[in-house]
Computed example of a mutant assay.
Amino acid sequence: MIAVDNLSGVESLGSVDYEPVWMFYCKNAFNESIHVSDRDIAKLRINIGPVGSGTRTQALNIFKLNGLNGDAPNLLGLGNAEGVDALVRGEIDAVILVDGFDSPNMQKLIRNPDIKLTSFTRADAYTRLLPYFEEVSAPMGGFDLGKNIPDHPIQLISTTTNLLIDNRLHPAIQVLFLEAAREINGNKSYFSKSGEFPAYMNTEAPLSDEAKFFYEKGTPTLMKYLPFWLAEFLERMFFLLLPFAAFAYPVIKSIPTYRTNLAKKQINSIYKELDKFEQNTIQTFDPNRRSEYIEVLNEMERRILRSKAAKLTTAECYSLRSNIEFIRNALEKQIIYKGREG
């Protein structure tokens, strides 16, 4: 686990595995009849890893919470492998490791009958005070049922292995990292369930936008069916063209409406012309000009039939032609203009 509080430009793709904090001690360091706590172990001659290591950082954080001095002379700075060997030889009393269950160092200590593993009975308190810690546990016999190792339930606190990236890393590469993490770390392990990782569990570094999308929506759909390069290209093009489509859609949608409105405007123009013709004819009707009047109406109808409005606004065209026909019949039969004839 790496502290990133003071780093800028760093984002997280999430956690990919548990790395518990293990605290081992020599069996003969305490009377077997007493309960041994992590505070007691911290006062022994204990190796907490070299300066600058993640193990030492976590050990000092734990000691600080317990009000213990991080500069005490009993705190040694050997490497993990050196510390484990020193503990096995009896040269030191205890060791703190931050490592996976399957690591050689862990297996070497777990199966040594002269070495004991401390249970963090206050694990819940640690996870509340240091939010990047998770609580994990091992049941009685969980390491070796035949030998009943451990001989009682063990509570542990665990950091998580995190994928940290430069926030300028291309989104497509981020997706590839997450896919690889799912493939490699998504299987069941001693402390994790199948499909538990990758997951955003450590809140020290902000989660990248691409990782947020990955955890919420899963693998981009196109990547399930197309080669990566093509799926990525289409995905990027979709998001690039989406704002344009949002702008263009109402414009495109309005094109048919626009043409229809023009056609209706043309129909209305002829309606006005027809109304003006009728009013003038009523006022100045001359029976000798009846054929002339009818020809004017015929020309109006021909204009309608030649226009685009006849195809776009069929109902309105038929209505207009019906009105023309009505006036034409009235002229021929002289219904409206009765009494006007000289």
Rank of each mutant, 00 (worst) to 15 (best):
M140S: 08
G141N: 01
L129N: 15
I110A: 04
H170F: 08
R168T: 15
G142R: 00
K147V: 04
D102I: 10
T127E: 07
P113R: 08
F133K: 01
P113H: 13
L163V: 10
T127W: 10
H152F: 06
S158D: 09
H170D: 15
R122S: 11
I110H: 05
T161K: 12
Q155S: 10
T159R: 04
P150G: 09
S119M: 01
I149D: 06
T159D: 03
R128F: 07
K108N: 01
K147L: 03
L156R: 02
T121Q: 06
D166W: 11
T159L: 06
T118R: 03
D151M: 04
S137H: 12
D144L: 08
G141Q: 07
D114H: 03
R168K: 12
L164A: 14
T160N: 14
S137V: 12
S137N: 10
Q107M: 05
I110D: 09
P153R: 10
L130R: 05
R111K: 14
I110V: 12
K147W: 00
Q155K: 14
L163R: 01
P139V: 10
P150Q: 06
N148P: 08
R128A: 09
I165Q: 01
Q107C: 11
I149N: 05
E134L: 11
L169G: 14
G100Y: 06
H170Q: 11
F143C: 07
L156M: 02
Q107A: 14
L169V: 15
S158R: 00
